[in-house]
Structures are given as C-alpha cells and as structure tokens.
Design a protein around this nucleic acid. Structure first.
Lengths: 202, 202, 202, 202
DNA sequence: GCCTAAGCGAGACGGTACGTCAGGTCTTGCA
DNA sequence: TGCAAGACCTGACGTACCGTCTCGCTTAGGC
C-alpha cells in the first residue's frame, strides 16, 4: 500500500527518496517484477535497506510509488482527452495510441508489475483506484459527457459502464496476451459501445 | 508453463501427482499465493521436493495444474451453458452464478493466484488460454450462436467480441476490487451487449 | 583452511562465534564427524547458516577452529613438559598421559575428525602445523634440548627427528587401531629413541 | 568394510564388478575422495546403483576393494623386499622407492582416500590390516629377520617395533605434508633404527 | 532347448543437506 | 543524530546424492 506515516517527515532525505524510486523503476524494466528485490533497490540507490523499510511498508508500495511518480503529469495539472467533436474518431485515436504505448517494452514490465501487486493487495488496489485510475477515468468521463451533450451518446448512458466496456476487454487482452491490440480490435470495441449507447431515435 | 516434458511418464507415481496438486490447492486457500512455497507443498504432500521439480518447471506451473484439475469436469465431457430459449435471462443467470462463485473464499485465492502467474508468464498464459479459457469460451460461444439462430442476436455478430465485452469488465472489476459484482452490474453488461448486437430490424 | 579473510571483523558478533565453535565440538562428540552438518551446527548454536559461511570457508575450517579453541591454553601462555632431570622417566610419563587422553571418548571423535580433514586439505594441514603442531613440538623440543644439555642425549641429535620417531608410531597405532597404546608400547618407543640417540661414550 | 555376504555369488556379473572398481579408482584420482559419489560411480560404470548396494555396504567398502585390487600382485604370490646382504642399503633403497611412488599423483589421491576411510571405520581398518598391511609387513619383517640372522640387527629386537619406527614417521610426514620425503629424511630414519637396534658388541 | 527366477540397467521416489539469496531487524561508525 | 553499510537470524530456494523401490530386459540353470 501507500507510504507509512513517516516518523518525522521533515528529516526525510529527498535525495534518497528519489534515488529509491528511480532505482525501482530501472530495475523493474531490467530484471522484471518477479526478480526485483529490496536489496537490489537499496544497492542501486546507494541507500541502506532500513531507509526503504522506514518509509514503505512493502515491496508493492515502493513499486506503486515509483510508477505513480511516472504517471503524474509533471506540471501538476490534469489530463484531458482530445475533443474534435467526433467521439468515434477521438476514442479510436486515443485507444490506438494507448495500444502503441502498451507495446513499448519500457512500459510493459512496470504495468504488469503494478497489476500483479494490485490483484493481491486490497490496500494497494484502493491506492491505485484513487491515485491512478480516478484521474484517467475522470478524463475519459469528461470526453464521454461531451459526446452526450453533442447528442452522439444517449443522455442517460452510464458513463462508468461505457468506460468499463471500452477498456476492460482491451486491458484484459493485453494482460493475458490473448490477441493483438490492433486497429481492428480497437475499432470493434468503439463501434460496439457506440451502437449500445447511441441516442434514442426519438 | 504447464508440465515439463517428462523424463519418462510411465514411471510416474500417480499417487504423488495427486497429493501434490491437492496440497497446492489447500495451501493456496490457507496461506494465500504469495506465501505458498514449494517446500510446504512437498511437506504437505509427503513428497520430496525433487519430485515436484521433476515434473513441473515452476511454482506457477504447479498452481496452474492444481486449478486445472479443479476446473475439468470429472466425467471428461464438455461444459454447456443453459439454453431456455431466452438469451437475456440465460446470460444474466449464468453471470450471477459466476459472481456468486467468485465471492466464495475457496475460489478467490486460487483464481487470484492463477491470474498473478499468468500476467507474468507468457507460457503459462498460453496454457491457460488453451486448457481453461478455450473450453469455457466454447461453451459461451455455443450459447451465443444458438441465440443468433433464434434471431436474438445479429447473425453477423462477432461471438468472440461479445464474450470479451461481456466478461472482461466483470473479471476486471473483481480483480481490481473496483466495485461489487451485483445483479445490477451484471444486468447492465448483458443489456449493453444485447443492445449493441441486436439483430437488424428487417 | 582456517577463517576466511573476514569482511570486517570489527562487526563480528563474538557471542555467535563462540556458540558455533561450542556447538561444533558438542556435535562431533555426539554424532561423529561424518554425520556432522553445517545445518545442525547452525541450529544448535542458534545462528543462521550464512553466519557460518561468512566466517569459515568449509566444514573442516570450523572443526579446526573449534578444536583449536580447546587446545589453546586459557592463560595464553605456552606449554611445557615436566623436567625432573630424568628424560626417560619424563618422556614415559608424558606419553602415558597422552595415551590416557586418547582413550577418552570425548577426545577421540574430534581428533579423528581433525585428522580426516587435514589429510585431504593442504591449507588446513598448514594451519594445523602452524597453530597446533608447532607449539606442541616446541615444548617437546625444549625438553629434549634440556636432556642434551644434561648429557642424556647426543648433543648433535636432530631434535625434530627424535620427536617424529617418538610420536609418529604412537599416533599411527591409535589412528589405525593397529594395537593398544599401553605402557609396554610407550616404553619401547622411548627406549628405542634413547638407545638411538644416546651420547657418545667419551 | 569388505563385501556383504552375497545373495548368490554365482550369478554375479563379473563385468559389472570390474567396471565398478575401475570407475571408482578413476573417479578418486579425478575428483578426489570427498567428491566421490555412488551415483557417479554407477553412471561411469554403466551400472544401476542397486548393483553397487547389493554387493558393498558402504562407499568406503567400494573404495577399499578398488584399491585392494590395485595392491594385490596379479600372480597371486607374495611380495618380497630385496636382500643384497646389506640391510642399510636395502632399506634405504626400498624407502626411497616408496617415497617416489608417493609423489605420483595417481597414487596420492587413492591412498589419502583409503586413510580417510580407515581412520573413521574400525571394520575397514581391520580389513586394511588383514588384507593390505599384513602382507607388506610380512615382507618387511622377513627382510629384517634376515638382517638379524646376518648379525646386522640385535637378535632380540622386536621386528614389529622396528617397522613402526621406520615407516610411521615416513607415512605421517606424507599424510600431514609436514616435510619432503627426501633421501636425507629416509636415510636419517634408517640410521636411527640401525643405531637403536644394533647387535650387542658381545 | 525352454522356463523362470535372479541379477541387472535404469531411474523415480521420499529424504537430508547443501550453499545461496533475500527478507526484515538490529548495530556500528561516519558525516 | 540520521543514514550507509552490512552483520545477523530466518526461511526458502533449486540442486546433489542418499539408500530404497519398482520397472522391464537379459541371462544363466534346473528341468
């Protein structure tokens, strides 16, 4: 889960914190999550093991924080999906871009690591939903609500459900490697959703 | 992945094989996947560690086989979804039943364990798709094709896509604990799919 | 051979060191050298196996050190043979005492263990000569030189040779169990030596 | 110790017996006694492990037999030391030759192995004395008795004691590597013995 | 000359111990 | 006095061998 309450956070050495998170990210990509060890992180970061245990409660917590640092936009602002007015085109474009990202080996290892932790640790799962999923979901929801206002989606459609139906099959296929995340698949998902939630032909 | 190529499987002691798989299943439910060790399995099964390493290549492979043994129907026959003629009712019933199963603590730990392994081990993932996912998918596909013949689903609908859209959000919600698998959610998924793939109106 | 070059011996826990050596001595007498295991030593000493491997390079090295601790005189001083002025009587008395020691089961097992290791490990043999044999030999040599000064042994006799001729048959008979270490045997050895190295008659 | 009582020695396969003893000798020279394993012997000899356990009771017994085969003179006859009439010269020559043999690496490993076993196994020690030491000792004794008859050694000298005093320091120096088995050392031993046991100057 | 029980090769098996790796805690000494 | 360094106890790893136990297959001996 997320960081322990620190004993006295004013004394915390920022330099060490950053070194630990950086080392963690590097090691995940290099050796994979299964072979990631606290000792290796400490060694790479030039830090005593105790310093890690002092601030994080588990390996999963360190991994989570290290990836959180990655996902947070540096300027502190929120994220937004493109909005050209054409929801179909926008969704397809965004999902194709995401598919491309997922093919990047540098992303693959960390994301699988994160999922491994989240599946088995409810606290971490909660932290994930709050810190990582919520902002992403908010951005997607915003774009969908815009589509509703534009009459491209039924006004009473459950936006969260749409996001689930759109992204869960996508993520699952990638995690289980049950098929390619190609354009055909992405398009089929978007088409399905648009058909299911098209506005009434009042 | 699944079993190593055995040195000479005719000499294999069936009694040990079963004891190992049983012990594995018991231990997963008792201590959880993360704390499952080969040593504990061997001890519980009354077996030398080498006997495990001789026939399985990794902890994941043992876990996989132990769950495979569970999922296989004892009579060797295939599985089939109920078919009352009403696809909506049937799908909702089946998914509600699955939701109930997933709430059973005896299932929860093993299935999470399995997913943890599969995400990180491509070979295991392939074995999973072949041995566990494929038969389930076939049963679901059969029911959906029956619905197509009955004119309840578009004849040209991609059955695999339907299954993905139906089950991926369901599984993901359970894995990430992002919400309850209640009737409302299940019904919403089925409704979405039926709307998206309803047959053309003449 | 004897201790590894220690990583940083100032950090070493003296309590563990002593516990290991004590446990080793106890176990040798209890189960014999052949059945002595590092795991048992660690368990008996209440110590991690790694702590043994960190400071000793082999089972033989531990055994050696454990016996070395025994043989070292607690006051740190040297050893000396009795000197009554009668070399024949003194040598016979000392060797009879040694014979008695060798019959003590508490000495038997460790000394056989030590010899087993030394025969097969040149490094250990060197350590043995330096740390255990040399001090004993010095004491014996001193007594013999005293006899030379007293005119009881030839002044030009090779003291080292005398020690070999005196003790090697004694040790060999005990190791190979080819006969009893009785007074008769001891006396015969001393007599032989005194005859071979008696001073020239004017 | 020596062979078990065989279940039915007529059925015994001579080919396997020889292969086992040969493999044992080879492996001792190659990897040393400590790393010699029954499994390796069986593999090298192309023999099932059971065949070894059927005929020998311990690793030591196999090693012993394999070396016994070496030491036995092929013609079944006894051994004899040279007798030129000059006991001093003969003894020095024989011991120098033995010293040379002991320097041969092909002899070194097996002899050390044998000693290792004998020190710790009383049964094996008895077998050693009976089968290997006794014949050698008989030959030496014979030569010494000849010297007594020739008036070169005291008639009442204890021949066994002479052999001990002559050979024990020699063997010990080699086993413990406490010095070279050079001519000087050998000559000193022989001189010592001849001085100690010279006939009375009637 | 066939039959049959043994010895045999092979190697799986339940175990024990190996030597190593990492976990999480505790201690030391430098900065 | 906070932290790097790392020793420590613990426990699991995956491997090597142990000695026992089937398996089929020769293979010699008694019929």
């Amino acid at each position: 889960m997320a960081p322990r309450t620190p004993p006295d956070s004013t004394r915390r050495r920022e330099r060490s914190r950053v070194a630990i998170l950086t080392a963690t990210r590097e090691l995940i990509t290099e050796v994979g999550y299964a072979r990631l060890t606290i000792e290796a992180i400490a060694a790479r970061a030039g830090v005593g093991k105790q310093t890690i245990y002092r601030w994080w409660s588990s390996k999963g917590a360190v991994v989570f924080d290290s990836l959180l640092a990655l996902s947070e936009s540096p300027d502190g602002g929120g994220i937004a999906l493109p909005d050209t007015g054409d929801v179909e085109a926008d969704l397809k474009a965004v999902m194709r871009a995401t598919a491309a990202e997922f093919s990047d080996p540098a992303f693959e290892a960390p994301i699988r690591a994160l999922n491994t932790e989240i599946i088995n640790d409810p606290d971490l799962a909660a932290a994930y939903r709050e810190k990582m999923d919520k902002p992403m979901r908010a951005a997607k929801a915003e774009r969908l609500r815009s589509a509703q206002r534009a009459g491209q989606l039924a006004a009473d459609a459950d936006v969260d459900l749409i996001i689930d139906v759109l992204y869960a099959p996508f993520t699952q296929r990638w995690l289980l490697r049950s098929g390619p995340l190609d354009d055909e698949f992405v398009d089929a998902l978007v088409d399905t959703v648009l058909r299911a939630f098209r506005p009434d032909r009042g």
